[in-house]
């Protein structure tokens, strides 16, 4: 039951934000749309309802979001800017092992790698991500994981596993 409420709430927030209004009409249609969409989609989106109650996971998610959008993104952007100016690049695809198992944890790691400039996940196979890296410093998978995705995996584990 709780998964329907959480998905419905997410839909409602997106609906209200997109409409940019809190009028009776928007709230009423928002309630209708969120009810219909949550009934249709919650079973595909949430598998383990218990995790939704865990406040610690939510706090980790908020902390990671702020840290990622500020410190991690700025560092990655500055690194790529420097490389563009100096042409200090040596692109290539490296094999990076992924240790987290749950689907959203893997998705978060993939998104985090791809969203930072300089690294893009191009494929996944047998618990490995194939990452296109702007400056390949190592082809050794464990070492590449330490540089590229270790921090992302730490938070993905805390939030979703």
């Amino acid at each position: 039951m709780i998964k329907y409420i959480v998905v419905g709430l997410l839909v409602f927030i997106v609906y209200i934000t997109f409409a940019g209004s809190l009028s009776t009409y928007t709230v009423m249609t928002g309630l209708l749309v969120s009810t219909v969409l949550s009934i249709m989609s919650a079973k595909y989106l949430v598998v383990d309802e218990k995790k939704l109650f865990d406040l610690k996971r939510l706090l980790y998610a908020v902390y990671y979001f702020v840290k990622y959008m500020t410190i991690i993104e700025i560092k990655a952007h500055m690194d790529v800017v420097k490389r563009i100016i100096n042409m200090d690049i040596d692109p290539g695809i490296v094999k990076v092992p992924v240790n987290v198992k749950s689907r959203y944890a893997r998705l978060l790691v993939m998104g985090s790698i791809t969203n930072t400039p300089g690294t893009v996940v191009v494929d996944e196979k047998n618990n490995y991500f194939y990452v296109n890296w702007i400056k390949v410093t190592t082809f050794e998978p464990v070492e590449a994981r330490r540089i590229i995705s270790e921090e992302f995996e730490y938070y993905a584990y805390k939030i979703f596993e």
Binding site: L10, V11, V14, Y15, F18, T29, V33, L37, S41, L45
Partner: peptide, 8 residues
């Protein structure tokens, strides 16, 4: 899910 919400 987000596209469906926005389209509505």
């Amino acid at each position: 899910l987000l596209i469906a919400t926005v389209s509505a």
